[in-house]
Design a protein around this nucleic acid. Structure first.
Length: 136
DNA sequence: GCCAACGTTGGC
DNA sequence: GCCAACGTTGGC
């Protein structure tokens, strides 16, 4: 069974458009144990919401895990991992953080409970709710 | 730009 | 092994 996730990136560092331009992106630079564990649990084909943090503050698109975790050679390779992702499609319309906070269906959403977590699981129900909000 | 939240580090 | 100091993230 495929799982659902949400990953954050600052659009001025690496935004949705950068991922689309690359075709396939390597999600690196994650230096947090919880986030890293989530990345290790990702399976090829899992779907991931792309969220713009700091600027934008909205979910902008959906991507898919194209390659499961491997050591992050840009940091201490014993410790952190990367995954590879491909863009699937842009949201019908972006889903702002503010709107997600107001949706009671999303009250347990991991990133709302713990804003600093940059790679977080999303349940099927939460996924469906967010896609509905995106007009899909 | 500020600062709250939270993870990590290092002296003891 | 505790915990104060420090660094980083991300919403505001």
């Amino acid at each position: 069974m495929s799982q659902y996730w949400l990953m954050k990136s600052e659009p001025n560092e690496y935004g949705w458009d950068d991922l689309v331009a690359e075709g396939e992106g390597t999600w690196d630079g994650v230096k947090n144990a919880q986030a890293s564990n989530n990345m290790k649990a990702m399976k090829k084909g899992d779907q991931v919401l792309f969220y713009h943090s700091r600027q934008g503050l909205e979910v902008v698109g959906i991507m898919q895990i194209s390659e499961e975790h491997s050591p992050d050679v840009t940091t201490d390779p014993e410790r952190w991992v990367v995954v590879k992702v491909k863009p699937l499609r842009k949201m019908g319309k972006p889903v702002p953080l503010k709107a997600m906070k107001q949706n009671p269906e999303l009250k347990n959403l991991a990133i709302l409970r713990q804003s600093r977590l940059s790679v977080a699981p999303v349940t099927k129900d939460e996924w469906d709710a967010i896609l509905t909000m995106a007009g899909e």
